[in-house]
Design a protein around this nucleic acid. Structure first.
Lengths: 375, 375
DNA sequence: GCACGTTGTTAAACTGTTTAACTAGATCGA
DNA sequence: TCGATCTAGTTAAACAGTTTAACAACGTGC
């Protein structure tokens, strides 16, 4: 056309070429040979001979569009196999429909059945609600560079789920103002106002202590770990309280740190039994430590459960398969992950009130526990 | 300059108002009270009194910008705490800098140490190379609705890593044309041309068979699983071949499916020993099945390794901690994950050649193996 | 016959960045 | 001194959608 002769000026005219019937942008872009690049809204609009706004409104079920048009355009969208570009969608709308999942910076954090269960629940629920999951690890430099804020500012995520965090993860404080949606998964923090969904660790510990006391145990050792984690502290607290209530002298020498590992559990069991040979039951803060304790007892020739009962906490897959199979507390980790995810999405969508969900736990009695020995 | 006299057809002029010194868009947006919304490139440009293009070029280290300007603008960016919006970046550029990780649709797939190790390697390497990880599960409906293509078309990801896939995952065929970058992690497919990074399963199996034959074992049972997975088939094939080479009659009754589980391993061990009481060694396709077999043997009163040697495959964390500790093949899963990730990123960045990486494995000798008994 | 409301659609502005094309000014060789 | 080449920027057009003010067409009510 005649624009070679234009004396264009131009500071005022930014002027995209208008979409004219003769050579609309879309057709000029979409020639026979470039079947490669994906179809855009414009292509659909051109095909349907309506404006892009109309197609957009059809996609978003805007009531301003008549049923007839909606149906007609929907069919064209279907036929052309159009998929909206979510970068463009997210750029102009307020949502990315992506949630971050932050794990602690432990080497091989993913190779852990505990986190695995939580993530399973999160992923399934997120998928059902139309959200994607992006993984993050809370490495020291990540937090130091304030990347936990950047993932929001840079529009990577709409919300964040944090797993396996403890009181020393001070970056959580940055979320206390509620500016960026966050939900703590299977833990809680009293010092910061944060949403959380958590298993009822204290309730589980109550059940364990009830059960052991009913079986006649009075000399109960505790293998705990990580008391800086609120839920772990809850378990230890219930152990101490119930033991005190039953008339037993509460004394720190009956509890030993097992660092949440097999080896730590074995070492802690060894230390406790050396200190207090009269122990008839060991209450362990997780199944790994319980299995470690069982190994130590087996090696030391102490029979489980005849001489010493062992109770775990977690109900991990292999808890049922060790010998003797482990009495433990079942934690609904999958459900907690799913619920936390759902509550976070509510928050992203605008819920203002803080939530604190607690899911019930229950004791699973297997073969590692019996009546207290009479000696 | 003299543009009022333009003879231009008006239908061509859509004309946004140009950014004039008097009322630039940016200042009109950024008033005193809305300190809330994040700073944009425009705000930085306005502050520095340059065009947005200049700021963009500074961010991308474009050599067209002088050192002086680069420094000056960098400082302003720093001071204002500007973070580029990556939705806009990705929309405009060709990359999202996000990789998808696809897991099989097993319930609780994440709660598996095998996938965990791979994902650890992937995440660490991706993070170092400036990529984020998005999780996907290969559910039947996901594949049926062609979502594996949609995540590319909708610009969720630049590339895809697939874990734990087998020959029945036909959607992989859609990636054989190389249109969308994909890398198979710790597996390989002969029927489709796909990049992969894999542990040397056959090499590991060779080492196991060498070792067992050297110890004098001739009656070796095999607990395998999932022969539809190429790597698992490789192990079984090496077992058969080496046994045949050693003069032993190769016969399917010496191999039994253990479904990759504890229980399956125990059941398979029981079946094999019932069928062939002369067995002196069991070669298991993974550690879980090996540990299951050990449990069966312990319960049946058969001593390990004095009467029967047991070999695993995987070197999972607890392999060292069971009693007796398990002789197994170490798989560099973390490294395979990391390498696959790196090769995928190469591909995203334009590498055209197909790659097939194989990482060496090695035998870890522990206490579950000994000389063949003489009976 | 005209103001008014409803309905359906469109044009234009907007999201925040990258990049190709352009330009003013300095340098330089012929 | 002129034109070519460099340098260091600017401009405007993408990228692919959403949102909203405006508007046309149509049916009512008075």
């Amino acid at each position: 056309m005649s624009d070679t002769t234009l004396p264009r000026s131009t500071s005022r005219v930014i002027a995209a070429k208008a979409t004219e019937p003769g050579e609309p942008r879309s057709t000029s872009r979409r020639t026979f040979d470039d079947a490669r690049k994906p179809i855009s809204l414009r292509d659909v609009a051109a095909e349907a001979k309506v404006s892009v706004a109309t197609v957009s409104m059809v996609l978003n079920d805007n009531p301003r569009i008549s049923r007839a048009t909606h149906l007609r355009i929907s069919r064209i969208i279907e036929r052309m196999g159009y998929q909206p570009n979510r970068l463009a969608q997210s750029l102009s709308s307020r949502y990315t429909r992506v949630l971050g999942v932050m794990l602690p910076a432990l080497r091989h954090a993913f190779a852990d059945a505990y986190f695995g269960e939580l993530i399973s629940g999160i992923c399934d629920r997120a998928g059902k609600m139309g959200f994607k999951i992006m993984l993050e690890q809370a490495k020291p430099e990540f937090v130091k560079e304030r990347k936990h804020i950047h993932i929001f500012e840079r529009r990577y995520v709409d919300g964040l789920l944090v797993l396996g965090m403890n009181d020393r993860h001070h970056f959580l404080e940055d979320f206390a103002d509620g500016r960026y949606p966050l939900c703590v998964v299977d833990n809680k923090f009293n010092q910061w106002k944060l949403d959380h969904a958590v298993c009822d660790y204290a309730g589980g510990a109550e059940q364990v202590m009830n059960y052991l006391l009913q079986l006649g145990h009075r000399h109960i050792g505790c293998i705990y770990a990580a008391p800086e984690i609120q839920t772990a502290a809850d378990v230890l607290h219930v152990y101490r309280k119930r033991l005190g209530d039953s008339g037993h002298e509460v004394d720190d020498s009956w509890a030993q740190d097992g660092r949440f590992t097999d080896e730590g559990g074995a070492a802690a069991a060894a230390a406790l039994l050396k200190r207090h040979p009269e122990i008839t039951a060991l209450f362990c803060g997780n199944d790994k430590m319980a299995i470690g304790a069982q190994h130590y007892l087996a090696n030391a020739g102490i029979r489980v459960p005849e001489e010493v009962s062992v109770v775990g906490f977690d109900n991990m897959q292999n808890a049922a398969f060790v010998t003797p199979s482990l009495t433990t507390v079942h934690l609904p980790l999958y459900q907690v992950g799913a619920l936390a995810c759902e509550r976070l999405i509510d928050r992203v969508r605008g819920r203002a009130e803080r939530v604190a969900e607690v899911l019930p736990t229950h004791l699973v009695v297997r073969n590692s526990t019996a009546m207290a020995r009479q000696s």
